[in-house]
Design a protein around this nucleic acid. Sequence first.
DNA 1: CGAATGGTTGATGAAAGTCAATACGGGTGG
DNA 2: CCACCCGTATTGACTTTCATCAACCATTCG
Lengths: 241, 241
Amino acid sequence: MPDPPPHASADVLRRLALHATSIATRQGQKLALGSSHGPSAFLVRKGTFVTYVTLPDARRRIMSVFYPGDIIGAPLVPPLVRAVLCAATASGEVWRLPWSRLEQLAATDTGFARLLTANLIDQAARQAIHALRIGALSGTERVASFLIELALRTGTPLDRGLAFELPLARAGLADYLALNPDTVSRIVSRLKTRGLLSQSGRRHIHCRDLDALGKECPLSSAIAELHLGARAPCPKGADQP
Amino acid sequence: MPDPPPHASADVLRRLALHATSIATRQGQKLALGSSHGPSAFLVRKGTFVTYVTLPDARRRIMSVFYPGDIIGAPLVPPLVRAVLCAATASGEVWRLPWSRLEQLAATDTGFARLLTANLIDQAARQAIHALRIGALSGTERVASFLIELALRTGTPLDRGLAFELPLARAGLADYLALNPDTVSRIVSRLKTRGLLSQSGRRHIHCRDLDALGKECPLSSAIAELHLGARAPCPKGADQP
DNA sequence: CGAATGGTTGATGAAAGTCAATACGGGTGG
DNA sequence: CCACCCGTATTGACTTTCATCAACCATTCG
């Protein structure tokens, strides 16, 4: 770990809260990356969010998944292809502020600047891992690596393993992992048959033995290193801007 | 284009030159991303460079391609998997300086800070395009999109088209495009047969009609938008640090 | 000129995509 | 609380694409 985990200190958050508006989100809600007042920045507080683009031939690709603590800046999202920020989980919360305000804060508030840099570097690393996932792994390996990521980031201990919610439906998983919905379904079924996962309802996954799942993909140790330190969501202390 | 093209102004470069060491590189030369003095930063002056990682199962993946004007910071390269920076073209030149020095410069020199930010955002956009390339395009589309990128970035006008050098051999192309060397070879052959490309020697490509090549891939307009503005290599004016 | 490296190409197989029929889950209204 | 309905998920049959292996060819460099 090059840097301490990106735990926003409560102080920094309190200062940030002075400039931000809290937004409660529902599943599928889209958030404009910019308005007439210029580009926006978002801090994820609760839930999972994704950015996606739609290609000329109507294919959709999910570019990134964001977790609590992540900072999303309109200028950092692919500026060419039309990108959309969208709430993935049933309920979520983000803080929004103008990108210019965020830049200003970064210039004047050392604590915030450090937080921002650490988070952006963390995101770049995740992006790199994801590029590897898509470019170098088989379907099963891709699914396994993402499930491990979700388990470590968002999971809660249960019965000697981890339980977590899928922030994406089959089609969303497929769009993120560069696979087909049918293929994702087959792969998940196979993992369940082999006893590596169990599912209750459509979105609840329980993985009894994360190490066994880790054996399914060559990137598991890198993913563990990245996400273990970052597990804690935003610290409490500045709950309402 | 959100920002002016990242032409380093000669002034900024002159200031940067005071802190940097020039390194002439040959094909395949590896550059350490950090030393005992801490992480390094590089500014590409001439030639093409790549970063790659080697997966546990010995597969190699090229993560990024860098062109003149790009700034490479050790902390920004995937910090988990062991990454290597490597000169791709026969001869190249980079300036190296300690990452801490670069940070310091960015904090005190507004012109340089702007240059750095613009370049990092440009790189992020290219990274996003590349993720799309690998995740959403077929083999032929991937190859076409990369050739268009190279033509626009590094090509010189020739006979109503563009001529350029491949910075990577077949295996390198394959590692970057998430394909097999054999498959890349087949695809390039097919493009040549169809008259979209012609090749002289092993690494010289001539594309008579870039629009025709553009029709082979859905991302061509995004790529054109990104790379057209950035064609000019580093301006002259501070040639030796 | 000849060895070595890298490129091409054909035959084959495995993995994932596509299409279509069917099953399930979760919400709604009776 | 149950029955129904819609959207989503699963699964099978088939096709396409790409990877693999192996043999052969072309460049380049000593």
